[in-house]
């Protein structure tokens, strides 16, 4: 591993952390290190692509579906040993906390 490779790896790691933390954009990182732009670009682009996964949301019906399944499970667990300590009087309601 030569000096150049070490330098690139260090810069790459810095850029990844800065993008992950929202401290720098992909474009800013590339502009800051033009000598490594070609090597940095595909990896940093992958980082920003992964970050778009944060936009994935459970479908609206899923929240209610699981809530209903949990309510059923809670009802059927009334009387089991664990819940004898405190029988759930109020099963969690249909409100949505956003």
């Amino acid at each position: 591993m030569n000096m150049n490779t070490n330098e690139f790896e260090a810069i790459l790691e810095t850029c990844i952390d800065q993008i992950a933390e929202g401290e720098a954009s992909l474009e800013e990182c590339l502009a800051r290190y033009p000598q490594f732009e070609a090597q940095l670009e595909p990896i940093l682009f992958t980082v920003t692509s992964l970050q778009r996964g944060r936009e994935i949301q459970p479908p609206p019906f899923l929240r209610e579906r699981i809530r209903a399944e949990l309510n059923d499970a809670m009802k059927s667990s009334v009387g089991t040993s664990r819940l004898k300590r405190e029988v759930p009087q109020i099963l969690f309601s249909n409100r949505t906390i956003s």
């Binding site: 929240r63 809670m74 664990r82 759930p88 969690f92 309601s93 949505t96 906390i97």
Partner: peptide, 11 residues
């Protein structure tokens, strides 16, 4: 056994 609390964790 408080299901309301579990509901908040779930949400």
């Amino acid at each position: 056994g408080n299901s309301e609390s579990f509901g908040q964790l779930y949400d």
